[in-house]
Amino acid sequence: MQTGRWRRRVDPLVTDTALACVLAVVTVVYARQSFAARYQSEGWPPFGLLAVALSLAVNLPLAVRRRAPWLVFAVSHGAFALYTAAGFQPSVNLWAPLLACYTVIAREPAGRAAWAAAVTAAAWTGSGLAAHLSPELSVAQAAIAVGVVWAFATGSRRLAQHNAQLAELTAQLEREQELRARHAITEERLRLARELHDVVAHHLSALAVQAGLADFVFTSDPAAARQAVVSIGESSRQALEEMRGLLHVLREGTGPGDADHLYRPSPGLTRLDELVERARSAGCEVSLSLSGPRRALPQGVDLCAYRIIQEALTNTIKHAGPEARVTVSLEFGTNHLAGQVTDEGGKAPAALPSSGIGLLGMRERARLYGGSLRAGPRATGGFEVVFTLPLAPLDTAGDS
């Protein structure tokens, strides 16, 4: 693991420089020792300063082969051609031009790489002829050497292209994951905004009406005023309970003692009677009608129906006034849940502003679960909210 990280930290220029220096030193030392032992007897010129200088010119440019592959290729092959033309023993400097050719083939398109391979093959063929090899052997030696380099270099180029594509795909996937995470956060914020609106608007509307009623009958009907104050206390406690649940969801972490609050079930139609009683305590005359076989609903659908009815009753308290008569109807069908909240209108309270978010939230909730919702004034006066939510068929729902 540590070795892999160390390799990734090493600059390629450093490794190429080290390789160029090693090749230059080995070439010069080997050539001078070989000339003294063997090449002099074969009639080659002495390996003097000119031979050393040309050998360094062949090998040292490899230090920048990744940064300027064509320049290194030209300098190395040019110096190699001069070295061969000067009559020095040609087999000494064969490998540096071959490595320069590899670099060009690995980095350039096939058309340009073919020109580099042809030049290197010609240089190797000329070196073989200068070394007194037969033309056939010289050509075969050059073809084999350049062919091996071509195979390795093209394989390296394809691998580099594949790695680049993988890196691009990885970056694209990371961007998509980030976008999905942001989208999920946005959806969660919208959901929590709807929940906060439903909780705050419903309970505060009921509190405002009940407080107004208590103030109105404080002297004329103390019993009614006391009942209104009791209702204010109950509504406040229920609002605090639901707000705590939402705030626990928003917390970054919870301790072991908070688990009960965090996983407390969301309200549903089982608490519909409490919802109706709160509306009645605000002064509305509410009648509840249920039809069809009752059954357990999915949690999301259950919460959706509860929130729609809650918002409809909240709007009634806001806009129709405490004396309005409201009818809440629920029908459990074989494959749907249908609900209707209607009021006959009344005198609206003086100061209960509306943002218009409630109707939008109800429609969003219904669409979220594949249902529909219609809300608007009635022809005979008042207002109505009608919604339908799809359910699994009754024979596969598991409860009835």
Rank of each mutant, 00 (worst) to 15 (best):
A24V: 07
V26P: 05
V28C: 01
V29Y: 08
V29Q: 09
A31M: 08
A31K: 03
A31E: 07
Q33T: 15
S34D: 14
F35D: 02
A37I: 09
Q40W: 12
E42L: 14
W44E: 10
P45E: 08
G48V: 06
G48C: 06
L49F: 13
V52E: 12
V52I: 15
A53Y: 01
A53E: 08
A53Q: 05
L54C: 06
S55K: 03
S55W: 03
L56E: 09
L56Q: 06
A57G: 15
V58E: 01
L60F: 01
L60T: 04
P61K: 03
A63Y: 03
R67C: 10
P69H: 04
P69Q: 05
P69Y: 04
W70L: 15
L71A: 11
F73S: 02
A74F: 01
S76N: 00
H77E: 01
G78D: 01
A79N: 00
F80G: 06
F80W: 05
A81G: 07
A81I: 12
L82C: 07
L82V: 04
L82Q: 04
T84V: 13
A85I: 12
F88C: 09
F88E: 09
S91L: 13
V92K: 11
L98N: 12
A100T: 00
T103V: 14
I105R: 03
A106R: 01
A110L: 11
G111T: 13
G111P: 08
R112A: 12
R112V: 13
A114W: 13
A117I: 03
V119Q: 10
V119P: 09
T120N: 09
A121C: 11
A123T: 09
T125V: 10
G126H: 11
S127A: 15
G128D: 05
L129I: 11
H132Y: 13
L133H: 07
P135F: 01
E136Q: 15
E136C: 14
L137A: 10
L137V: 08
S138Q: 04
V139R: 00
V139A: 05
A140L: 09
A140T: 08
Q141Y: 14
A142V: 01
A143W: 00
I144D: 01
A145I: 01
V146N: 02
V148I: 07
V148L: 05
W150H: 06
A153R: 00
